[in-house]
Design a protein around this nucleic acid. Structure first.
Length: 224
DNA sequence: ATATCGATTATCT
DNA sequence: GATAATCGATATG
């Protein structure tokens, strides 16, 4: 019998290095794919939160009808038009915040939406942020429990305590930033590409990326 | 397991 | 005034 890939991963602290602006200064499709397997880190007074990114979506800018930047620059979407490597946070459906990173050079719109990660550090704090009570009965390694923390853009943002007023426009590439992205050398075996979730315009464009077979992805794929 | 629906507000028409 | 890059609860197979 072949062994399934381990569900949980750990961080290789010795190898972890911050992603640089160059990483984000290219087509969002390439950034979205390259971000799979990277670490998303949130530093808080209560401790460091971290997860391994398993699902992303690319939003291409003025030519992409589904992108917030499609109709040009506004006060809301201006981060997408700014320099690469900055947080674009928007509020949706009266309930949820969603976290993105800007791509392409200053003046050109584009971004990647973070849709899901595997919780790795600060799990108890993330559960608290999600309104989930921790009791001795809860197994912190249980896949269903972990998936409920951060499988989906709204959940992920809530687990990290992301809000628009706090985080929109924040740098992902600053050494001192409380929002960081890092590469610890984790190798992604296979990437799946599907249409993006929850959009109406440009609904068929294959711009969603996730790690094949990963249990923390929000959905398997389009229910075709 | 999948399907449907209400919540709730910033943004744009 | 309509819409939206979603989630959680509820209903049903």
């Amino acid at each position: 019998m072949s062994t399934l890939p381990a569900a949980r991963t750990t961080i290789d602290q010795r190898r972890a290095t911050l992603l640089t602006p160059d990483f984000f200064n290219r087509d969002p499709r390439r950034v979205a794919r390259a971000l799979l397997g990277k670490l998303l880190i949130r530093k808080t007074p209560g401790g460091t939160l971290a997860g391994r990114i398993v699902e992303t979506e690319a939003y291409l800018g003025t030519g992409d009808a589904a992108a917030h930047s499609a109709a040009g620059r506004t006060a809301r979407n201006s981060v997408l038009f700014g320099p690469p490597g900055y947080a674009y946070v928007y509020f949706i459906y009266g309930n949820h915040y969603c976290l993105n990173v800007s791509c392409l050079p200053d003046g050109v719109a584009g971004g990647v939406l973070f849709r899901a990660f595997e919780p790795i550090a600060g799990i108890e704090q993330m559960a608290k942020a999600r309104g989930i009570a921790i009791s001795p009965k809860i197994d912190l390694n249980n896949i269903s429990f972990l998936k409920n923390l951060s499988s989906g853009p709204g959940r992920m943002s809530e687990a990290l305590g992301i809000t628009r007023t706090r985080d929109n426009g924040k740098s992902f590439v600053g050494k001192k930033s409380d929002l960081q992205l890092a590469d610890d050398g984790y190798h992604v075996r296979r990437v799946m590409v599907t249409p993006r979730i929850g959009i109406v315009k440009s609904a068929d464009e294959p711009l969603r990326y996730y790690i094949a077979g990963n249990p923390f992805v929000s959905r398997r794929g389009p229910t075709v």
